[in-house]
Design a binder for these strands. Structure first.
Lengths: 254, 254
DNA sequence: CGAGAAACAAGAGCAGTGCTCTCATTTGTT
DNA sequence: AACAAATGAGAGCACTGCTCTTGTTTCTCG
C-alpha cells in the first residue's frame, strides 16, 4: 500500500520532457531484469510459490533491494500479468494481421487461435498465471483489464467481419431470449465498434463459447487432462478450431 | 518417499478380519479431521499455499504430529485430490442416475453437467485443485487417475446410449482422418465397454470438445474471466450445455 | 563546485513455512 | 506384567515475505 519512496512517477504538469538521467535508465533496466528473472522462475514455480528472494538472487541483489522496485510480491505479480497479457495480445494481433486476404475469415480465425496456443505452449508459466487458478487473496487491479481484452477483441473483429460479409449460422436449438445473459459481451463489442446493432444474440453466444472452448482446450492440454485421450495436442487443437469455425458459420475464402 | 512408520496398511493374507482396534478407529477419525480442515483451508488458500502448520493448528495438533498421518504435504494433496475427484464423480453419477427416463438423453446430459457445475460452485477451492493450474513440482500419482475419470465415463455413457438409439450428428467440416489423434479416447471408451466399434470418430471429437467446453466455461466463471461478459453465469451455463447437446446430435426425449 | 536531498543496496530481524529429529507418553500384543 | 509399536510434543534447520536501519551512490540546485 505504502509505495515506499518511489521516484516521481510522472513529471509535474507543464514541465518539459527532461532527459533521462542515468538513474532513470538504470532503474528501467533493473526493473526489466527483475521481471525477466521472475518470468523464468514462474515457469517452474507457479504464481503462488514465486519466491521474491530467489528472483533477487537471480539478478544478484539482496531481497530487500527488490522492494525498491516493487512494493510487494503482489505488485510484481501485477506487472507480470500485464506483461504477459500484452505479449499474448501482441502475438495474436500480429498473427491475425499477417493474413493478407482479409476476406479469408477462416484463415484469420485459425491464425489468431494458433497464435494463442503457440504462445501458451511456449510460455506455460505465464499462461497459468493468466488463465489458471487465481492466486488466493490477490485481486488483479484495474490496469490488467485492458491488456486482458486484446485477444477477444481480435476474435470479435473476425467474427463480426464475417457476419458483415454475410456468414450465416445454424439456428439455436431452443427459442430463447438469451440476450440479457450476454448483454455484457454485446455492450463490450458495441463500445469498441466491433458490432453492428443487429448482430444476432446467437452469434455472441457462439463466439463466447468458442472463446471458452479454445482456452479450455489449451488449459486441458497444459494442465495434463488430455493425456491419454489425445495423442497429438497440436493436431487436436486444429480440429477443434475448425469445428468452432463451422459452428460460427465462418466459411472458407473464395 | 519414506512412509515413516505407518500402521500395517492391510492385514497379511489368510488372516481373519480382525476387529478394529481403538487406535485404528482413532487414526481414521483424525485422518478425516485433517482432511476436512485441509479442505476448508483450501477454499481460501490455494493448493500451493496450503499451510500444513495451519491445518495442524485447526485440528489442535502440532505440525510434526500431522506427519504421522501424511508423510508430506504432497501426500496430503494427493488425498485431497482423490477425495475431491470422488466426491465430484459421485455427485455426477447420482444426478445422472436420478433421471428415470433413461431414453431422455438430453435430460441426462443436462443433469450430469449441472451437477458438475453445482459441485464446482459449491467447492471452488477443490475445483481449482482438480482443474486449475497444477502445483509445480507435484505430479499426481496413479491413484488419482481412476477417480478423475468418473465424470467423463458418465458423459460418454450418455453419448453412446444416444448413438445406439440412433442419434445423428452433422457431418464434420473437413474430410479428415482424425481417428489417430483421438485414438486414446476411443480406446478408453472401448476398454470400459462404453463404445461400439463402429462409433464415428467425429462423435468422439465432439464429446471431447463438449467436455473441454464445459470445464472451460466453469473455469472461466470461477476464475473471473466471464465478469463483464456474462451476467448470470448459471443461465449462461445452461445455454452452453444445450448448444453442446445439439452439436452432438442429442435429441429431446419423445 | 560543493552541499543537501533523493535513491539505492545491504544487512539484521520478525513471523511464518515444510520437514526432520529426539524424547516422553499412550496403546496393543504376547 | 513386559515389550513393541504408534503417537504427540518440542526443538531446530533452511527457507519465505516483508520491515527497518545503516551506509553509499547519484542527482539537483544554489
Amino acid at each position: 500500500m505504502t509505495p515506499v519512496d518511489h521516484p516521481a512517477p510522472a513529471a509535474s504538469p507543464a514541465s518539459p520532457p527532461r532527459a533521462r538521467t542515468v538513474r532513470e535508465r538504470a532503474r528501467e533496466q533493473i526493473t526489466a531484469e527483475i521481471l525477466t528473472a521472475a518470468r523464468i522462475r514462474l515457469t517452474e514455480s507457479g504464481p503462488g510459490e514465486l519466491s521474491l528472494r530467489a528472483v533477487a538472487r537471480d539478478v544478484g541483489m539482496v531481497s530487500s533491494a527488490v522492494y525498491r522496485y516493487f512494493a510487494s510480491r503482489d505488485e510484481l505479480l501485477t506487472a507480470l500479468l500485464v506483461l504477459a497479457y500484452d505479449e499474448l495480445g501482441a502475438a495474436v494481433e500480429q498473427a491475425e494481421a499477417a493474413v493478407t486476404d482479409r476476406h479469408d475469415v477462416v484463415g484469420r480465425w485459425r491464425a489468431a487461435w494458433l497464435a494463442v496456443r503457440g504462445w501458451a505452449v511456449a510460455h506455460p508459466g505465464d499462461y497459468a498465471l493468466l488463465y489458471g487458478s487465481p492466486v488466493p487473496g490477490y485481486a488483479a487491479p484495474q490496469v490488467t483489464v485492458e491488456p486482458a481484452t486484446r485477444v477477444i477483441v481480435v476474435i470479435l473483429g473476425i467474427v463480426m467481419d464475417a457476419t458483415a460479409a454475410g456468414s450465416r449460422m445454424p439456428e439455436p436449438p431452443g427459442s430463447g431470449d438469451d440476450a440479457p445473459v450476454v448483454a455484457g459481451a454485446i455492450g463490450f463489442a458495441q463500445e469498441r465498434g466491433l458490432m453492428q446493432a443487429e448482430a444476432p444474440t446467437e452469434l455472441v453466444v457462439r463466439t463466447l463459447m468458442g472463446w471458452t472452448t479454445v482456452f479450455g482446450t489449451i488449459s486441458f492440454e497444459l494442465f495434463g487432462h488430455l493425456v491419454g485421450s489425445v495423442s497429438r495436442a497440436d493436431d487436436y487443437f486444429e480440429i477443434v478450431i475448425d469445428r468452432l469455425a463451422a459452428d460460427l458459420g465462418l466459411t472458407e475464402a473464395d
